[in-house]
Design a protein around this nucleic acid. Structure first.
Lengths: 205, 205
DNA sequence: GCACGATGCCTACGCATGTTAGGAAGTCCG
DNA sequence: CGGACTTCCTAACATGCGTAGGCATCGTGC
């Protein structure tokens, strides 16, 4: 009656099993690494035999794809709920810090979202959608907050450079803050380059 | 008589076979991707059966390790031969451009050198040596060229950010220049932040 | 000159993985 | 109550890395 007209009981049960498998997959990924994830381990954790997983996911890549979608959806939701200061420079700091904190909090999730650590895995267009949604919102916020007209190159530089911080952090100092602590300085550099006023003084060139 | 005292003929032949296997491995990596590299394909390309490769490499990881060493050694050599301008800012540009060009020229090589695409693969200390050598030389050149005293944080920021450009280039626009063309602007930002004089005018803050 | 040991490659096998085929049991609907 | 659908199972296959053991070749010492 609610939502979809044919929202039967077993549909909900099926969705629950799917979610259970996904949860198990994340646990295995955290324990054995994203690349070390195996259908055997997932099946065992969920009390099934490996082939039975194929009732719910067409392939291992489909499982990865669902995880990818889940990760980006969560980022998208949290990004939508994020309140940013009105000041453009402060907003820039908030956006960058939010992204970096999210990426640094979970290694397999970050690898799945932002890197290509699974050979031959490419997210499906549907799973890719939340990421472009989040990105578009972020860019929109940029443009709305800052009086400046951001070019595409500005955005490209920003995402590349902030992504570099995250990658370096995971590669060279996992769990630490050797690179993430440089983020504020980096964002200020970018803000200066974009001609944004400083937060503290608000002077104008 | 020359070089090592026990430089027998079969040692050279053995080294030649080893090199042949390595060449085949690179070719396969270019064709099927670094993660898609298989001992079957390498063996076939070299006219052997897969187990025979174990006469020359202890494992598949050992093969990756040798490739890693080879890649970083080449970078190290070319880096040593690189002539940099005396001007600190121009030197910064040269260093960054050299690194980016090298990383963008070859995907599997870049994945092997700078990313962790192969699960459970960690380069051996011996294979890691050329990379630290190249890095130390680069940092030394920094310090020698610029009158400024670079902190470790400065170097960290530089490598993280330049690495981000490369990663974004490969991820979002492979074969293009959407991100690499922003390198000059980025390096100027860093140079400004470090207080380096501009090349064209040479003014002082 | 010849046996002997080392070397290099082979075949056969083991084990892990993703995946498919086909069947059995439980469940829902008419 | 009976048939269709769903879900899970066992069995098996293909491919991957890696090991064991055998055989030929080649250099070396007697």
């Amino acid at each position: 009656m609610l939502g979809s007209p044919t929202e039967t009981w077993q549909d909900r049960r099926r969705a629950a099993v799917r979610r259970e498998i996904l949860d198990a997959a994340w646990e295995v990924a955290h324990r054995d690494g994203l690349g070390g994830l195996t259908l055997r381990a997932v099946a065992e954790r969920v009390g099934m035999r490996p082939p039975s997983l194929y009732t719910h996911f067409a392939s291992k890549h489909a499982l990865y794809d669902a995880m990818f979608f889940q990760a980006w959806s969560e980022f998208d939701e949290r990004s939508a709920a994020l309140e940013l200061p009105a000041d453009p420079r402060a907003a820039l700091h908030g956006i960058a810090r939010f992204y970096v904190d999210f990426a640094v909090a979970d290694l397999p999730r970050h690898q799945l979202m932002d890197q290509r650590v699974i050979p031959d895995f490419t997210p499906s267009p549907e799973s890719y959608a939340p990421s472009v949604r989040a990105m578009e919102r972020t860019v929109g916020r940029f443009r709305a907050a800052g009086g400046v007209a951001l070019t595409e190159a500005d955005v490209d530089l920003f995402v590349a450079v902030v992504g570099g911080i995250v990658a370096a952090q995971w590669s060279n100092d996992p769990g630490g803050d050797r690179y993430t602590r440089l983020l504020g300085r980096l964002v200020d550099m970018l803000a200066d380059d974009l001609g944004l006023a400083t937060v503290t003084s608000g002077e104008d060139p």
